[in-house]
Design a protein around this nucleic acid. Structure first.
Length: 593
DNA sequence: GCCGTTTTCGGCCCGACTGTTTTCAGTCG
């Protein structure tokens, strides 16, 4: 039974007391807890419980402090009374007692050592007990001094692996942008598909699920002669080193530092393996649980009833056997997709082909490299019917923000280009800075000239959550604001977003009919997919904006479509699927409303 | 630590690969 949500004005941040840790920090603490427990040799199921809880928090649909306050967090699978209590304590104090006690017992360097490939808790413990090693630097020295190869369970090879592993974690961070990994994966995929022994091939893993950052590339192949594929795969020119090579599984590191796992199965196993290796882990667990309930057993090799295999030609058939509609890979995040597939209420997700136009591109008027005409021509080549240009506003001097005079000049040029490009429309917009007090960056008479206004925060990030939230809500309330640009300001793998109460922002957008952008620049992908489902449920419209400063950059809208799909959005939720006429009406009515 | 239509105790996924062994422990996903 769910406890009732507390009601609250969207003007107010979630709790009177400021939480002492962000959701990400809580996830990190729980993961560290799992690692510490491993090193001290705790009950493996307790270790897994902390790991599972951290993973659950990572795909939470709403703000964590809210869920703790309402008690809804206890409804999340994998979060029981114990961990719920720990999370409460972390929110109040920044840590929790049991974690601190354990941390005092284990030298901090041991946790770092776990990050070295091939190093697990047992080996770390052996090295610490036998040689007193407690940092990566000490480990490196010991390996160089040939102290490790003589330890029981270690040898010359493991010593070398430790040294190369240390080098590797120094050179490369553990996650990569989806855009970069996609490019690498596409190349390898093409090479593999050319192989005459390959029946079916698929890029699986988090890449197939369109996760915003990706740890490695998982490629699945069905073939009759796995050995020949393994040989050719490990010999690809993009491969830097081979970490493992077997009959059904090989791992390599590319020159770019990205890991690739290749698995080969028989064609009969392919549908089951593709489900398994696409994940997510939690989705797989849910699927296995459902299979079990129906008297089946599901694993990566097949679907069994009383140990008899149930053949399936493809993933669709596996879902069907389990009484489910097909679940698109992007939705396989354990966010209610199995329930919806059972009830036939999965949304029909927006596709790249549905997109008819883009908003949020920059031109030579501010800091873009293409003219309005270049960008329009580029969009036309992508098969689009309209483009919304939006250069920076006057406060953004560093980016060549437009003076009122420039705005007028640009308006005339936009009109002329639309006139010359028969059947293609250019909408004249602006990406207006949201000033620290929440006002927009021009007087009303200038704002009134634009077809649409994207309001974005570009400066003064270090406000409190309450201040930032009211600042942005004030901009949302401005009648000239059409869209909210990159709502959290995050830069993936580089900088956290500014502190903002995102549920309040979404509610304000719903109340004032303001569109929320999915900024599809590969480094942003903001608004995050985790919040889109609730935005959709509140009736907020979404726009995909590539935020591109080049003609080529417009192609990044595909990543925005991926985010939209992960957020359960249909074509009708995304205004880029509307005709130019419908867009014109929408912009007009939003101004009047 | 979590979970429960056989349940409040006793389960909790397990197979592939590597390296060090000479039949297996540790790691990984």
């Amino acid at each position: 039974m769910k406890k009732p949500h507390s009601t609250r004005s969207n003007q107010k941040p979630p709790s009177a007391k400021k939480p002492k840790a962000s959701t990400q920090e809580i996830i990190d603490i729980l993961e560290d807890m799992a690692n510490l427990l491993e090193i001290v040799g705790a009950n493996p199921f307790k270790i897994r419980a902390f790991g599972n809880a951290a993973r659950e928090l990572d795909s939470l649909p709403t703000d964590l402090p809210d869920m703790v306050a309402s008690g809804d967090l206890l409804e999340v699978p994998g979060i029981g009374k114990g961990i719920y209590g720990h999370i409460q304590e972390i929110l109040e104090t920044g840590t929790f007692t049991e974690f601190e006690e354990l941390r005092n017992k284990v030298p901090p360097g041991l946790l770092d050592m776990l990050k070295i490939p091939g190093m697990g808790p047992k080996k770390v413990k052996t090295l610490h007990d036998k040689l007193g090693i407690s940092t990566i630097a000490e480990l490196e020295q010991a390996a160089q001094d040939d102290l490790i190869s003589h330890l029981p369970g270690f040898g010359q090879r493991s010593q070398e692996r430790i040294l190369s592993g240390i080098q590797r974690i120094r050179n490369y961070s553990k996650r990569h942008l989806l855009s970069i990994v996609t490019k690498e994966a596409d190349t390898i995929y093409r090479d593999i598909c050319k192989h005459s022994d390959v029946d079916r091939a698929l890029i699986a893993g988090s890449l197939r699920r369109s996760r915003e950052t990706v740890k490695d590339i998982d490629i699945l192949v069905s073939a009759k002669r796995p050995d020949r594929i393994m040989n050719d795969f490990t010999a690809l020119t993009s491969v830097d080193s081979v970490s493992a090579k077997g009959d059904t599984k090989s791992s390599v590191v590319l020159k770019s530092g990205i890991n690739v796992d290749l698995r080969v199965v028989s064609d009969e196993e392919f549908p089951f393996a593709s489900l398994y290796f696409t994940g997510s882990k939690q989705h797989n667990t849910d699927m296995r649980g459902r299979a079990k309930k129906l008297g089946y057993k599901l694993n990566e090799y097949g679907l069994y009833k009383n140990d008899h295999p149930t053949p399936c030609k493809n993933e669709e058939e596996v879902f069907r056997k389990l009484g489910l509609d097909f679940i698109p890979p992007e939705l396989r995040e354990s966010m209610g997709e199995i329930q919806a597939a059972e009830n036939h209420t999965l949304p029909e997700l927006v596709t790249q082909q549905d997109i008819r136009g883009l908003f949020h591109v920059h031109t030579t008027y501010s800091d873009g490299t293409g003219t309005i005409n270049d960008m329009a021509q580029g969009a036309k080549k992508l098969g689009l019917q309209y483009l919304g240009v939006s250069d920076h506003s006057q406060t953004a001097v560093y980016a060549g923000g437009l003076s009122p005079a420039k705005v007028k000049e640009q308006a005339a040029e936009v009109a002329a280009i639309t006139e010359s490009l028969k059947g293609f429309t250019v909408f004249h917009g602006i990406e207006s800075d949201i000033l620290p007090d929440g006002s927009l960056d021009y007087e009303d008479d200038i704002l009134a000239m634009f077809d649409f206004v994207i309001a974005s925060v570009h400066s003064v990030f270090n406000l409190s959550e309450a201040e930032m939230t009211s600042r942005i809500i004030r901009a949302i309330e401005n009648p000239y604001t059409t869209m909210l640009g990159h709502p959290t300001g995050r830069v993936l793998l580089t900088r956290e977003g500014y502190k903002v109460y995102i549920n309040g922002i979404i509610e304000a957008c719903a109340a004032h009919d303001v569109i929320i952008e999915i900024n599809s620049h590969p480094s942003r992908l903001d608004l995050d997919w985790r919040h889109l489902k609730s935005a959709r449920e509140k009736g907020v419209r979404i726009a995909i904006g590539p935020d591109s400063h080049t003609v080529k950059g417009m192609e990044d809208f595909r990543f925005g479509v991926g985010v939209a799909r992960k957020g359960w959005l249909t074509a009708d939720d995304v205004i880029n699927t509307y005709s130019a006429d419908r867009i014109r009406q929408l912009f007009r009515s939003s101004r009047e409303g």
